[in-house]
Amino acid sequence: MALVLLALVLWGVGWWINARLANGPQAGSRAVGLLVPAIFGVTILVVWELLVRGLEVPLVILPAPSLIAVRFAASLSILWQDFSQTILKGALGGYVIGCGAAFVMAILVDRSDFLRRGLLPVGNFVAALPIVGTAPILVMWFGFDWESKAAVVVVMVFFPMLVNTVAGLRETDQMQRDLMRTYAASYWQSLVKLRLPAALPFIFNGLKISTTLALVGAIVAEFFGSPTVGMGFRISTSVGQLALDMVWAEIVVAALAGSAFYGLIAMLEKTLTFWHPSQRG
């Protein structure tokens, strides 16, 4: 009981510190902007730990963060194997193929107004569908190994990326295109020097949406059949064995991989589209 009380007190203290910081004179500074969510996150972890111990929540319902950390440290090699199977091979492979294919397709489609008119609504429609459902079909076609996971990821990221790139290629206005014309620029010159740079914010939007989709696709596809390695496989078998600390360790890996992947693309965006108003502010 004492632990539960301590948890409540700590929650109050954490909130109080945050309230002081957020309403204090330094509230606008960058340090506070990082400190406040950090304190919030740490408070949640501590309260979680204390509540699980204080209320003696069984392991099969919710393991304490310390247990998850111990499990994480103890099974680094398994986690690494799963990571490289699911993320590096499945998700990343599919991501590169899918986004690349969508990019090339977008440039081809952009050349024909008729095709663009027809494909854009269809692409928008498909992008809203539950495409993860194609996983069982693709697993059947490409086998249990990472190729089928990559195929699911390709299908999932293709349409969001296509729609965004096609929209981005329309971003230049008449004036700019006319300017290129007065320079006697060829199609390729105006594509590379004007229209692709102008499309970059849209392309990066598509790339960022696709990062999460890629991880989701690779993990969910493993629920339909996989070799005995991989994050989705480990999650579903560990759930079966009620080894929830292992499941949480995998989820930590997924969360870290997802944020790092997204962060990487966002960083790339920042360096490549430094000129765009949304990046200057």
Binding site: A27, V36, P37, F40, L215, V216, V239, S259
Partner: peptide
Amino acid sequence: SRVMDMSVMPWAIVSQTIPIIALAPMIIVV
């Protein structure tokens, strides 16, 4: 609430980048 904004909002945005669906089997079993 400024406090909630500063503490929760960054996590809400980060959570968008995480394949939350990995939690699904666990939620069901728990």
